[in-house]
């Protein structure tokens, strides 16, 4: 498994786990639970950054040559394809969110819905990279 693929796994799993916990907490609070919790979101972002850095450094320690090597043409192509898929998902989801906004959901719902869309797009991007690496594309 290449360093880039490992990085994609780290990104996908850490985002899924950490943001999964965040959204689970939001859902538990209910759609009418007060204002947008910036503190909770900030903690989530910090936790994600720390986890990704720690895991990426750990992987880099075991494969220092690969970690230092720049992305080659195949890495760049895989990344571009993944971005294209993720962007399509993002655009479609935002359009749907705009449609449902017409039904006047609570502000907290709107804010978290947009965050959920963004996180899902990022996870989708990492997943697309992993699929391509696994297929040897």
């Amino acid at each position: 498994m290449s360093f880039r693929e490992k990085s994609a796994w780290i990104s996908m799993l850490s985002m899924s786990g950490i943001y999964g916990f965040y959204f689970w907490s939001v859902i538990r609070s209910g759609p009418h639970a007060g204002s947008f919790h910036f503190g909770g979101l900030l903690e989530t972002i910090i936790a994600l950054v720390v986890v990704e850095i720690v895991l990426t450094v750990a992987v880099a320690i075991f494969t220092p040559k690969e970690a230092k090597a720049p992305r080659d043409e195949r890495d760049k192509l895989i990344e571009l394809r993944a971005m294209r898929v993720a962007y399509s998902g993002l655009a479609t989801s935002v359009a749907l969110a705009c449609f449902f906004a017409g039904f006047n959901p609570p502000l907290l719902f709107n804010a978290n819905a947009l965050l959920f869309i963004l996180v899902t797009a990022e996870i989708l991007r990492s997943a697309c990279q992993i699929v391509q690496y696994r297929r040897g594309a």
Binding site: S2, R4, A69, D72, E73, R74, D75, R135, G136
Partner: peptide, 13 residues
């Protein structure tokens, strides 16, 4: 290139 890319080239992928 990376070793994985060379492998993908050899396999025609």
């Amino acid at each position: 290139l990376t070793r994985q890319t060379v492998n993908a080239i050899e396999l025609g992928k």
